[in-house]
Design a protein around this nucleic acid. Structure first.
Length: 422
RNA sequence: GCCGGGGUAGGGUAGCGGUUAUCCUGUAGCCCUGUGGAGGCUACGAUUCGAGUUCGAUUCUCGAUCCCGGCCCCA
């Protein structure tokens, strides 16, 4: 009886894995160059960490369990909360701003569909300690640069929640939250009904419905007409000026709400084409979670990139490994092993492990796409050299191992390419 | 949790009440023990699971399960 993999999980074959690692390393390199440092948090955490952040309702979507010491645990559904927990536990005295990033798997008990799995990977960034527009701008710009680097055309939408909150601040806090959630869902009917239900002032109602539809270049001036010259708009403009300077293209969109109370001002989402219903590849903003987890009043900005969705639409190819195959006879197998040891610091080398005959070894080399084979037979051993055969041209030459290393180090562009990656 | 569409060797497929379950590809080996890519031959390998209808089910019915897509949700 075959055992199948759990629902919503995936096996990554060698080709898939190579591709994922390649893209992952490109992203990692960019984030490092922007001055962020990678961290790793536990795969499972206390259930409370996430219910604290998101409420009890989240439990339905978690892979939670009780451990043998009767502790309520869960596989992490996201990484912002763990990173904030880590900060509160052990990084509060660090020099700020603290620039952290992660690339880890997360788990949600949900119905799988296109771009949605039960185990999925998130690449995220958290900048802790600054509430300035400069911090928000750097984080947003970074997200767009990352997507660009892997060849994805993203559509960036930005908002500052301060504006809509300014409008709503005459209402009860709970009503404000509910409205933000409805705005986030773009549930206009539900929003209307709710405004009716709480008997919101007509003036507010009109302005709100108008505001959340504002997008594009005119949005700022239109918003000013609705709410006046409030500091939040100024702050929003400061951010946009910075984004212009970064060369980032964006759409102002007062309809982005992100639905959660802990977002403080700047919020943004990036969408990509070709992903069906799950087209959001990135989401983030500035938020205040540290206080909730028992730390100080420290502001943060961050985002999460849906790595699996990126892999769905990203078309860049990982470089080939271009393996070298050593071909030996029964009498020279030990010599082949010794040679492989000398070559392996410089290139990927395959020995025959199947005791195949000479011809079949060549066929094997051909099938795995080797550009070169190294033939070690009695003649070569006698000469103290090896035969290097180019599988594309068929040319052969008798060389010392040192000469082979020199030659393939120069001609085989795999080697420098590989070093470049790290 | 809900709604649609699907499951036949590792991958891609044909059969649609009775077949030795078809073909392509793949892998291993041989033709061919110092020269690969072609060809020939051989081997390996499948009806998702469980009930029901039937003399007989891969085929029809129901249920489960998994996959694909959508809804809900999206921290």
């Amino acid at each position: 009886m075959k055992i199948s993999k759990p629902r919503g999980t995936r096996d990554f074959l060698p080709e898939d894995t190579k591709q994922r690692r390649h893209v992952e390393n490109i992203l990692r390199q960019i984030v490092r160059n922007w001055g962020f440092n990678e961290i790793i948090t536990p795969t499972f955490e206390s259930l409370e960490l996430f219910t604290l952040k998101s409420g009890e309702g989240i439990i339905g979507e978690l892979y939670n369990f009780t451990d043998k010491g009767d502790r309520e645990m869960t596989l992490r559904p996201e990484l912002t909360a763990p990173v904030m927990r880590m900060y509160v536990n052990e990084m509060q005295a660090y020099q700020q701003p603290l620039k952290l990033f992660y690339f880890e798997n997360c788990f949600r008990y949900e119905r799988p569909q296109k771009g949605r799995f039960r185990e999925f990977w998130q690449f995220g960034v958290e900048l802790i300690g600054s509430n300035k527009a400069d911090a928000d701008a750097e984080v947003i710009a970074l997200a767009t640069y990352m997507l660009k680097a892997v060849g994805i055309k993203g559509d960036l939408h930005v908002n500052n929640l301060g504006v809509i909150r300014h409008l709503l601040n005459i209402l009860e806090t709970e009503h404000q939250s509910k409205i933000m959630r409805l705005v986030d869902k773009k549930d206009d009917i539900g929003l209307n009904d709710f405004l009716e239900e709480i008997d919101a002032p007509a003036d507010l109602r009109m302005k709100l419905l108008e505001l959340i539809c504002l997008t594009g270049d005119e949005a700022i001036s239109n918003a000013k007409e609705l709410v006046g010259e409030i500091p939040e708009i100024q702050r929003f403009q400061e951010l946009l000026t910075l984004l212009d300077t970064y060369g980032v293209e964006y759409t102002i969109d007062f309809g982005i709400a992100r639905g959660l109370d802990y977002y403080t001002g700047t919020v943004f989402e990036i969408y990509a084409e070709g992903l069906g219903a799950q087209n959001q590849v990135c989401g983030g903003g500035s938020y205040q979670l540290i206080k909730l987890f028992g730390g100080g009043d420290v502001p943060s900005t961050g985002f999460g990139l849906g790595f699996d969705r990126i892999m769905e639409v990203c078309e860049i190819e990982a470089p080939d490994d271009k393996p070298i195959v050593i071909i030996a006879k029964d009498s020279t197998r030990l010599e082949a092993v010794k040679t492989s040891i000398k070559l392996r610091p410089h290139m990927p080398v395959y020995n025959d492990l199947m005791k195949r005959n000479f011809k079949a070894q060549l066929t094997y080399a051909n099938n795995i796409g080797a550009n070169h084979v190294i033939i070690i037979g009695e003649q070569e051993v006698e000469a103290g050299k090896v035969t290097l055969k180019n599988m594309n041209s068929g040319e052969q030459e008798l060389l010392t191992i040192e000469e082979v290393i020199l030659k393939l180090g120069k001609n085989n562009d795999t080697i420098p390419e590989k070093n470049k990656k790290r």
